[in-house]
Amino acid sequence: MEDITIDASVRNSSAAVLSKAWKGIQNAKPYLRIREAAKELNTSEAALLATTIGENCIRLAPNWHDLVKRLPELGHVMALTRNESCILEHKGVFADINVPCSGNGGVGTVIGPIEARMFFFKWHVAFAVEQEKSGRQLTSLQVFDKAGDAVLKVYLQEGKSDYDAYYRLVQDFRSEDQSPEQYTQPYAAKVYAREIDTKDFLGDWSELQDTHDFHGMLAKHNIHRHDALELARNIFTFPVAASSTLQILESAAEVKLPVMIFVGNRGNIQIHQDKVKTVRVLERGHNGPETWVNVLDPSFNMHLRQDTVATAWIVRKPTRDDIVTSVEVFDENKELVLSFFGLRKPGQPEMEEWRKIVSELTLLVNLQNV
C-alpha cells in the first residue's frame, strides 16, 4: 500500500499526551472508532492502544510463527482484516496453519473457515486487549505493522471461544516491555519505474501460467498495479463502473454462485470462498455521508465504503487452466481495495456463471470517465 506522510514528532508524542488527547476526543465524539480517532489526532492506532497498557491492554512478544500456531486453541473466533475502505470478518476456527520452518518472517497460510495469507515480515507489534464497548466486553488479539496500522484482529466469541486458552496464550507471550509508549514509523512510498516497455510487459502478461505469477510480473517491471491495468486497457483489462461491487454481490447472491473475495493490507490478506446471501446498502456517517455496501451473513460479514471507490476493472489473466477473470476495485489513491473472482480450484476452469456476471457489468468507454 502507498504511504501517507505524518510528522514523527506528532505521531510519537508521549503516551501521557496521547492518552489525554484520546480521552478528550472520546468525550467529544463517543461514536468515533479508535482508527478514526488516530487519524484526527495525527497518530497511529497502535500508539493510541499502547496508552492503555496497564489498564486493559498487554503487549505481546513478537514471536509470530509460534503465536499464530496457537490460534486454533482459541476455538470459534471472529477474524477481521481491513484496509482504508473495506473490512472482512469471518467467524470460525483457525484450522490448517502453515508457517515457514525457520525464522520469524516469511509468509504463512491459513486454510479453513478462516482463510488468510500472513506476511510476517510486515508484522511489528501485537496486543491482547479487553475493552467494553456498547455494553459488551470485547476480548481480542490485535496485530499492527510498523506504521501502527492494524494487520489482523481476532475477537473471542462469548459462549463459543475458549477464554482459558486465551489467557494462557497471553501469559505465554507476554512481553517484558509493558511501556505505554509505542514508536511507529510511516513506510516510505515505493518508487516505480518511470518508463515501461509496453510490448515486453504485455508479452509477459500474455504468457502468464498462474494467477500467482501476476505479482512477480509487476515486480519484474517495477510497475504500480493500477498503472499496469491502465497499460493493458482493452487488451487484458476493461474499466467498469465503480458501483460494480454491488452488482457483483447482488448477482452472485441471486444465482447462489460461490465467489472469492480478497481484502488485504500490508501484513495480511483475508479471503472469502463461498456464497454470499444477505446484501445490504446502508447510508451513515458522523463526519459526512458514507455509503456502505455490506454482506451480512451468519459466519461472514463484508463492509465496503462504496463512496471511497474510484475505479473498478475487469482483469483477465491467462493461465494453464484457461483465462481467469477477476474484478479489481481501487480507491482514489489507486490503492487496491478488494478483488472478486469466481470460486475455482487449481486445474479447473472458472465457472461460466461467473463470466456471465462479469459480462453484464457496465463497461466505461473513456478512461477519463472511470
Results as ranks from 00 to 15, higher is better:
N222Q: 14
T5A: 05
Q247K: 12
D331R: 02
D322C: 00
I34M: 07
Q131W: 14
D177L: 05
I223N: 10
L304N: 02
E158D: 00
P239H: 05
P113L: 13
V143N: 03
R136I: 05
W205S: 01
A21E: 01
N301G: 07
R344E: 08
E132Y: 09
K23T: 00
I357M: 09
P113M: 11
Y155I: 04
P289G: 13
N301P: 05
L152C: 08
F330Y: 11
G92K: 05
K317F: 07
A193K: 15
S161P: 10
W354Q: 05
D297H: 06
E132M: 09
N27F: 13
S140L: 03
V309F: 02
S326H: 02
N42D: 08
D321M: 12
K122R: 15
Y167V: 04
G112K: 06
H286N: 12
K275G: 09
A165K: 00
S134D: 01
F120Y: 13
G264K: 02
G148H: 06
E230K: 13
L282Q: 08
F201L: 15
F173D: 05
E207D: 14
S251A: 14
E176S: 12
I269T: 00
V324N: 07
R33M: 03
A193V: 10
S85N: 06
A116K: 03
T52C: 05
L152E: 03
Q273F: 07
R284Q: 06
K256Y: 11
P72F: 02
T237Y: 13
A46W: 06
I6H: 00
F238K: 11
V129F: 14
S9A: 10
L74K: 04
D274Q: 11
N366I: 02
K91I: 02
K160C: 08
K277P: 01
F173V: 06
H224M: 12
S161R: 05
I323G: 00
V329L: 04
